[in-house]
């Protein structure tokens, strides 16, 4: 009996522990030293083989940041201005001094995103779509004030094997949304952004246009 009880306790402890994900809280000391009002999102560096991925990811970054209450510089306008300055490649922009970039646009902070993975792997009957991004924000004076990394994977065929109410419906909804816009990548990208900006320990403090916190 005692053995059973301790075993049960162990199992439940493991299960509960698995849920809680005891990550240390993210250190916002640098961020909070001079919290930005405005964020300059620069063209996305692409380390994947899909040449279009950079622009696609760029189109997903404005909404979550603005919804948090920050002024987000218009990403396409920023891209066009940089091109007029002769900066056609995101890598060129990445190599500039953040302070120089911030000064060019009058921004409080600069957000750099790098695509590390953006691929679909076809294995017999299942397809796994993977995206992975590095995010880094620097203060207008140069220091890094925030960083995150997120990988998201999606295997549509799983829904048949695991077959269970809500999960199936969510997966079906994601599939439907995905086929409307692009094969799977965009919803995954949006989820990755959502996670790092709004959900996980890296979630950003509310910006100046956020409703007052209670």
């Amino acid at each position: 009996m005692k053995t059973w009880l301790s075993l049960a306790a162990l199992v439940s402890a493991c299960t509960l522990g698995g849920c809680a994900t005891p990550k240390p809280p993210y250190d916002f000391t640098e961020f909070n030293k001079a919290p930005p009002r405005s964020i300059l999102v620069v063209p996305v560096v692409n380390r994947s083989l899909d040449v279009d991925a950079s622009n696609y990811v760029l189109s997903t970054l404005t909404i979550p940041l603005a919804e948090l209450g920050y002024y987000v510089f218009p990403v396409n306008t920023v891209k066009v201005v940089l091109e007029q300055e002769g900066l056609y490649e995101p890598e060129q922009v990445r190599r500039m001094e953040p302070s120089q970039l911030a000064a060019l646009f009058g921004a409080d902070a600069v957000l750099y995103v790098t695509i590390k993975r953006w691929d679909a792997q076809y294995v017999v009957i299942s397809t796994t779509v993977t995206v992975e991004f590095d995010y880094e924000m620097t203060h207008k004076n140069g220091p890094k004030i925030w960083a995150a990394n997120k990988q998201m994977q999606y295997t549509p065929q799983n829904q048949q094997q695991q077959g269970g109410g809500l999960a199936v419906l969510i997966a079906a909804a994601i599939t439907a949304a995905a086929t409307r816009i692009a094969p799977n990548y965009l919803p995954l990208t949006q989820q990755a952004n959502q996670q790092v900006f709004m959900v996980e320990s890296t979630k950003l403090p509310p910006g100046p246009y956020a409703p007052p916190q209670k």
Partner: peptide, 27 residues
């Protein structure tokens, strides 16, 4: 389930009028 899912999504601060999808389409 659809109702529950909709109820879970917090209301947006701004009306974006599909800005992200339109920009994506434009690229």
């Amino acid at each position: 389930v659809a109702t529950l899912l909709v109820a879970c999504v917090p209301p947006r601060k701004y009306d974006w009028n599909n800005y992200d999808a339109s920009l994506y389409q434009y690229y």
